[in-house]
Design a binder for these strands. Structure first.
Lengths: 235, 235
DNA sequence: GCATATTTGTCCGTATGTATA
DNA sequence: CTATACATACGGACAAATATG
């Protein structure tokens, strides 16, 4: 029995799940759902029906539930007992919390680069900045947002700490949930294309303390922008 | 069919799982296994057999696997594809990584207390120090270790950041895995009873910068002790 | 407030594929 | 290489909680 209502975002799923064959089924399902969530096709607040997804993805309920758990641990789904899983709506509190950790981690990483920074390791950061500039030129503001996120992830990876990378990945994934509350993706992401370029310049010249200060301001401004959007979402 | 080999640590499980009835079955199972791991009854490196645990705990595979996932996310189990779950053995690298995050977080929290610290919120810290001293007097060094961990968890909670609390809980749980590599629990934990008391004193008098510096040394020493033990574990 | 339908939570049995002795 | 043990995944079933009328 096929489902009668078949929203656009559901249609493409079945193929994608079968496309990859690496790792476990649950992880593949999680990959697909993750991209749907971060790209905003599943807006915050929506419930993910087990029955519906099981039939669309052609996986068993147990497998789907394992995928749910994976995403719940990443903060991309919240689980309510006997009610199901939902895409969370970030509150202002959560934003403040997320930025507090981001600032702590990223500034700590930048300051730790003092003295021992191999320029070759900045390669991924250069690429991300370039990708952001290119996307901005063609007006693809979602791609600009993605490039920005990757820039910050790669920045943290300079520290070479596995757990910092993991925590950062989770923070940035959660943060993306708030992006969809902002009306204009351009206004949200455009200013940071140049600021990323500037930040990278300070790293190249080894001015880590100035970079850290700039980063603090950067995150403060970014936070203010998102807070405005989230607060004006619903009174 | 009951299992024929029945190690000591397995025998008490069945009752405990049925004892609590809050929350989901998977979480109860995870609670029981978590205590067994942190208390060292399941030494690092040991494999947790699905079949065996399913029969002992009288839960289904699905439920047990959900519990496994919870603990894997906490860092108390590692999952190898098609091989099962194991209690991880922390490498020296992991210890360095763990302490790097601990130091970053705890020092950041302490410095953030500048100016705005309500003395009443130090209550849990006082209790933990007292518990540590009491346990030390009666020579219960495992309890001293527990009190120390709780002290640091409560310290971080002063920041009021949900995600910092979660990350810290995970870090400390992982850290406990390394404790079992140390021969003498007394040598490992005793020095920090007094140092916790001293740290708390600096917070009471509001000397946050001195407290942060002391904390840095504290963690450095603690790290050195554990690194020695882990490195001399196997040549 | 109550009865019903829907959905989740848990468990079982089995088939298939993978790793290791 | 074969055999065994085990994890992965599926589908069905029933109980329990929630949502709906």
């Amino acid at each position: 029995m096929t489902t009668t209502d078949d929203p656009a975002w559901l249609r493409a799923l079945a193929h994608e799940v079968r496309l990859f064959d690496r790792s476990s089924t649950a992880e593949r399902v999680a990959d697909v759902l993750r991209s749907r969530i971060t790209e905003g096709e599943l807006p915050p607040g929506s419930r993910l029906s087990e029955e519906q997804l099981v039939s669309v993805l052609s996986v068993s309920r147990n497998t789907l539930r394992e995928a749910f758990r994976l995403l719940t641990h990443e903060g991309l789904l919240v689980h309510q007992m006997h009610r199901g899983v939902f895409v969370p709506e970030l509150a202002a509190d959560d934003l403040v919390d997320l930025y507090r950790l981001r600032c702590m981690i990223e500034c700590d990483v930048v300051r730790s680069l003092e003295g021992n920074l191999d320029m070759a390791r900045l390669r991924p950061l250069h690429d991300d900045v370039a990708a952001g500039e290119s996307a901005a030129q063609r007006g693809d503001w979602v791609a600009v947002g993605t490039a920005n996120m990757r820039f910050h992830q790669h920045l943290v990876e300079l520290a070479g700490s596995r757990r910092m990378n993991e925590v950062t990945a989770r923070l940035l994934a959660e943060l993306r949930l708030a992006f969809h509350a902002v009306a204009s993706a351009q206004r949200l992401h455009e200013p940071y294309v140049n600021r990323n370029r500037g930040l990278l310049g300070l790293l190249v010249t080894g001015e880590v303390e100035r970079a850290a200060k700039e980063l603090e301001e950067y995150l403060h401004d970014s936070r203010a922008e998102l807070l405005d959007a989230v607060r004006s979402r619903q009174p």
